[in-house]
C-alpha cells in the first residue's frame, strides 16, 4: 500500500506555527489536492513527506517511495536537461530510463541544451521527470502549474491524469482551484497550519448549511430574515447560510406570514466560493 497517513503533525519555525496538529489521509492510487493560501503550511507538509523536515510532533506514515519537488523545480543550470537526469539516476539503485522520462514530459527535443536557458515551465517538467526517474509510488507536486502557459498547464494536467490512471498516488499542492478541480478526487484545505477541511471535491462544493430557496414573495421573505440566519438575495432566489434548525424556523415563520416556500434545496457552491469561505 502506498498512501500517506499523517496524525497530529506539528512544526514550529521559530515563532511561526507552520503546521498545527494536522491529520492527513491520502489513500493509495488517488490524486489528492492540498489547497490553501500562501504560507498555509502546504510546502512544509510536502517537505515532511520527502523527509526533508522532521515534525516536532505527530507521526507520518508514507507507504512507498516518494519523489517530487517543493516550491521551486530545482535543477543544475550548468548541466543539460539530460545530464541533470543522468546525475540523479546515478544515485538510484534501480533508476528508470532517462530517455523514456524525457519523452514522458515532452522534453526530448530540448534535452541536450543547458538548463540555464530554460523557461520555468520546462524546469517544472524536468523536475517531474526527475521524480518519475525514481519510479515513485507517491508523486509530490508543489504548485506545478506555476509559470505555465495555458497549453503547458493542460499538457501537465494530462500527464498527471495519465500517471494517476497507472496507479500512482499523486499529492498536488496548489492555490489554483481549477487545477485541483480538474485533477483531484479529494482535497485537504490548510489555513494557517491547520486543516480547515478535508474530503472529496464534490463534498467541498456542496457543504451542508447552504440552501437555495424560492418563495411566493422573495422581497418580503428577505425582509423577514432572522438575524441567526445569513440570507442573501441572488438571481431570483434566496441563498440561506446557517444550521438546519435556523432554516426550519425561518420556513415556519414564512408560513405564518402567508409566504409560500416553492422550493428549498441544498445549494452547490462554486468551488471557489467554498474555498474562499474556508480560508476567510
Amino acid at each position: 500500500m502506498s498512501g500517506v497517513v499523517g496524525r497530529g503533525l506539528s512544526k514550529l519555525y521559530g515563532a511561526v506555527q507552520a503546521l498545527d496538529e494536522v491529520d492527513l489521509d491520502v489513500p493509495p492510487g488517488t490524486v489528492h489536492g492540498l489547497l490553501g493560501p500562501n504560507g498555509a503550511g502546504k510546502s512544509t507538509l510536502l517537505r515532511m513527506m520527502l523527509g526533508l523536515v522532521r515534525p516536532d510532533q505527530g507521526t507520518l506514515e508514507v507507504g512507498g517511495v516518494v519523489a517530487g519537488f517543493v516550491e521551486v523545480p530545482g535543477a543544475y543550470p550548468y548541466l543539460t536537461g539530460r545530464q541533470n537526469l543522468e546525475f540523479l539516476a546515478r544515485l538510484d539503485d534501480a533508476p528508470g530510463d532517462v530517455s523514456t522520462v524525457l519523452e514522458q514530459v515532452d522534453l526530448a527535443p530540448r534535452a541536450d541544451t543547458k538548463v540555464s536557458g530554460w523557461s520555468l515551465g520546462m524546469r517544472q517538467r524536468l523536475a517531474i521527470a526527475g521524480a518519475l526517474l525514481r519510479a515513485p509510488d507517491i508523486l509530490l507536486l508543489d504548485e506545478p502549474a506555476n509559470g505555465l502557459d495555458v497549453l503547458a498547464a493542460r499538457a501537465l494536467r494530462e500527464l498527471v491524469a495519465g500517471l494517476a490512471t497507472e496507479g500512482l498516488t499523486v499529492i498536488l499542492s496548489s492555490h489554483d482551484l481549477a487545477e485541483v478541480d480538474a485533477l483531484c478526487e479529494d482535497a485537504t484545505v490548510l489555513v494557517s497550519g491547520r486543516v480547515a477541511w478535508t474530503g472529496s471535491i464534490g463534498a467541498l462544493r456542496a457543504r451542508p448549511g447552504r440552501h437555495r430557496m424560492s418563495t411566493s414573495d422573495d422581497a418580503r421573505a428577505f425582509r423577514l430574515a432572522p438575524s441567526a440566519l445569513d440570507v442573501q438575495m441572488a438571481d431570483g432566489a434566496l441563498l440561506l447560510h446557517g444550521d438546519t434548525a435556523g432554516v426550519d424556523a425561518y420556513v415556519l415563520a414564512l408560513g405564518r406570514e402567508q409566504i409560500a416556500v416553492r422550493s428549498l434545496r441544498p445549494a452547490s457552491l462554486a468551488l471557489e466560493d467554498a474555498f474562499l469561505e474556508l480560508t476567510r
Partner: peptide, 20 residues
Amino acid sequence: EDGHGTWPALLSRSRTRAQV
C-alpha cells in the same frame, strides 16, 4: 544545492543523507 533548490530531488534518491 540550497542555491539551486535541488535538495528535494537529491535527497529523495536511494542514498541516505549520510551517504550524500
